[in-house]
């Protein structure tokens, strides 16, 4: 991806994050934070019949974490649990420099070179740690 475009997308999602806000009591709320830094995000996830109907987020985090959260939410809303898990798996593989499916990831491909900054990997994956927790919680309740 063109570095200028990559930067523009990340900054746009940082400055104007999508789906910022708090969910209501029918949402599953999880907190996700990095012990090594100061990012701290709450996610609210609304599931219906194995579909992710809505996600909201709130908290304080760096540009990479915030942008990654905004992009992840846009991509996951409307996906079934299976689709979501495939997306998450592909994203994590990309971050870990393993073989992954870029076609699945759409806008989340902007983080395809984050592995070059080791200290930023945990920022990019922060919301994914959260959504996995929320999915596990949903499966438990179901």
């Amino acid at each position: 991806m063109d570095p200028e475009l990559r930067r523009e997308i990340i900054l746009d999602n940082y400055n104007n994050p999508q789906h910022k806000g708090k969910g209501t009591s029918n949402y599953i709320k999880v907190n996700t934070n990095n012990s090594s830094c100061i990012d701290n995000i709450d996610l609210w996830v609304l599931f219906e019949d194995n579909i992710i109907k809505d996600i909201k987020f709130d908290g304080e985090a760096c540009a990479i974490s915030t942008a990654s959260t905004s992009i992840m939410i846009k991509e996951l809303i409307g996906k079934s649990l299976d689709e979501a898990l495939r997306f998450i798996d592909s994203f994590e593989k990309m971050i870990d420099e393993e073989k992954y499916n870029p076609e699945l990831l759409n806008e989340a491909n902007v983080f395809d070179e984050i592995y070059k900054q080791a200290n930023r990997k945990t920022c990019a994956t922060l919301p994914y740690k959260g959504i996995i927790k929320a999915i596990e919680e949903y499966k438990k309740r179901r």
């Binding site: 830094c37 100061i38 985090a61 760096c62 540009a63 900054q117 920022c123």
Partner: peptide
Amino acid sequence: VFAQDVAVYLNKYNICVRAGN
């Protein structure tokens, strides 16, 4: 600008500062 992003930016110029609480 989030404190951590300032620290990451300065790190690119080999300047070490602390971000956080």
